[in-house]
Amino acid sequence: MQNELKAAIRFNDFTAYFGARGVLAMAWWMGAVHAARIRQDQNSFPFLQIVGTAGSGKTLLLDYLQKLNGQTPYSHALAHATPAGRARTFASAGQRIVICEEHGELGQTIDWDELKPLFSAGSVSLRSGDGQSEEVTFRGALVITASQPLDCSDAVTSRMVMLDLSAADAHTPRVRPEAIGNLNASEASAFGIEVNQAGEWICGSLQAFLPACQGQLTRKYGASLNGRTALNCAQMICLVDLLCNLLAIPQDLQLETRKLVHDIAFLDTMPY
């Protein structure tokens, strides 16, 4: 079954193109399907920030991932909307993964702190025409794409897991983009079906293994590791391990992906 699922989503071609960063993105995507439940259980689910210059593969990666759960593109240019418009977008997303594009156009800015509630309680405040306010729960998950790391507060940064596709140590593609770009969405949706059916296993395993994983990170990196970052990284390590179990991913790739998460934790302890 594992080999059939890997073949259906062209997993080997996917990792030949994106390497461990692709595995980390897929692990987050698997968790994002159950983001509302994870926030309910643990009071948080991290945002995914995908950074990369033109041609680094951001669009290819997201197009591929969306096929896994049969999601049609749900992109949103944050700076092009008013705060009320952004709130409506998040409120109407349902359990979908919202992809927010940051293009950094001159004169267009956003207060990134607006997004902080989506990390934990997921509450969104909507105002009606008569001035009344209604609290709606965001049940989806948030991806932010940008050419450079966001210029935002530490409070927002600590709510994100950043994946830099242009990093010096980024994986060099070993296949052409067409190897995964023309993936059949119908066949790829087998992954989404499997992940949906495995909700109890995914969320229950996170509950069971997260405390130990978070404790290991805190002991390894000390008091200088932000508690929120430790929780994000612990969630991601657990999700990576669950994905590796689901797809029988080789141990060397699992360890390489885990190292990416540990790098996030380590960099959080560095003084600036």
Rank of each mutant, 00 (worst) to 15 (best):
R86T: 15
T137S: 06
S75N: 15
L61G: 03
L61F: 04
L62M: 14
G70T: 04
P149E: 09
H103D: 04
S147A: 12
D130A: 11
C152N: 02
L115M: 11
A54D: 00
P73A: 06
L106C: 00
C152Q: 04
S125A: 11
Q95I: 05
I144G: 01
Y74C: 05
D154N: 13
R127C: 03
C152E: 06
A141F: 01
T72Y: 10
G140P: 05
G140F: 03
S125W: 03
T82A: 13
D151F: 01
V156S: 11
T137Y: 07
A155T: 14
T82N: 11
C152K: 01
D63C: 00
G129V: 05
P149Y: 04
A77F: 11
L163W: 03
D154H: 12
N69P: 03
R139L: 14
C100Q: 10
L78H: 08
R127E: 13
G55C: 06
R88L: 12
G94L: 06
T109W: 09
G107N: 11
A141L: 07
L106Q: 10
Q95F: 12
K58T: 02
L60F: 03
Q66M: 12
T89W: 07
P149N: 05
L106D: 05
R86A: 11
S125F: 07
L118P: 00
V161M: 15
A87N: 10
E114V: 12
T157I: 11
G122L: 04
L65E: 01
L65V: 03
N69T: 08
A84C: 02
E101N: 13
P149R: 10
E105F: 13
S125D: 08
L150V: 08
Q148H: 12
K67S: 01
M162F: 04
